[in-house]
Design a protein around this nucleic acid. Structure first.
Lengths: 156, 156
DNA sequence: GGTGAAATCGCCCGAGC
DNA sequence: GCTCGGGCGATTTCACC
């Protein structure tokens, strides 16, 4: 399933693409001193091996009106299947990411919402749809994510 | 600074690009029933307004050998500036994201590391470089992030 | 926002190292 | 395995309506 481990050039190409996925093959080729054909072969291989999952745009959610971020730590009844919470949370547009956790809480959900009212509704929905015994919500003041993004710097 | 609020077509284009940033202009144009030139103008505008921050690749970090994820909640001395922790954490390749928090802990750091040993080293480095009074680390069993990715499904 | 044309790029082929 | 070169189709990009 997985090919051979990546060499330094593969990692270099990955780093360049993470900076800007819109680089042309010739641009990348010049930077790693390879031909465009070789670069393309490597990128194709990385993609088919699943190292590269996809290509996306990074969006400033604050400028879209979703300026509030929060984390909520969830605890379930012992009977709840982990898959279930992941499956239903995934469908909520407010959920940015879901983490199942080893420890005192069972899951950590990264939420992005429009405002406090919206946060409250989202938390209500979470509590309603699962066998949750407790929630603990952390409000995010500012955030930084690898590959820039300044929700705190983009006050409209 | 910020242009006019985005219309439905802008949001549609954004959604399409988030699914796959490599879509061609003509593909997008067909889906939103516009000309390629019009789509390009909108994308350019979204980019210069800062709504689109950048274009990147989504990488399966587990396949790169960084299969362990964790969160660590940090508490600082009252004298510590928030900027400082963000600035130094940002430089660590292990830090995936940093959140400053309102509540009992001051920051939440999303870490991605190779193994447990690496996690320990990273936590040590965090503790060494800041006026941290306490850390509490949550181990991630599985994670889901918007825009697919199954670190748990990619066991090599 | 649409149209059309030019420049660029991606892409596939083969030959050769 | 990689490079080089050619050629074609697709795409981007631009000026203009």
């Amino acid at each position: 399933m997985t090919g051979e481990p990546l060499d330094a050039t593969d990692r270099e190409i990955l780093a360049l693409l993470r900076e800007d996925a819109r680089r042309t093959l010739s641009d990348i080729a010049a930077r790693v001193t390879l031909s465009t054909a070789a670069v393309k072969r490597r990128i194709d291989r990385l993609q088919q091996e699943g190292v590269i999952v996809g290509f996306t745009v990074q969006v400033d959610h604050a400028k879209l009106g979703w300026g509030v971020e929060a984390f909520t730590q969830l605890r379930f009844f012992g009977t709840t299947h982990v898959d279930e919470i992941v499956r239903t949370t995934t469908r909520m547009p407010e959920a940015q990411a879901v983490f199942t956790i080893a420890g005192d809480t069972d899951a950590l959900v990264w939420l992005r919402v429009r405002d406090m009212r919206h946060l409250q509704d989202t938390l209500d929905e979470l509590r309603r749809s699962h066998h949750i015994t407790s929630t603990k919500t952390l409000m995010v003041l500012d955030s930084w994510t690898r590959g820039q993004q300044w929700p705190g710097a983009s006050r409209t």
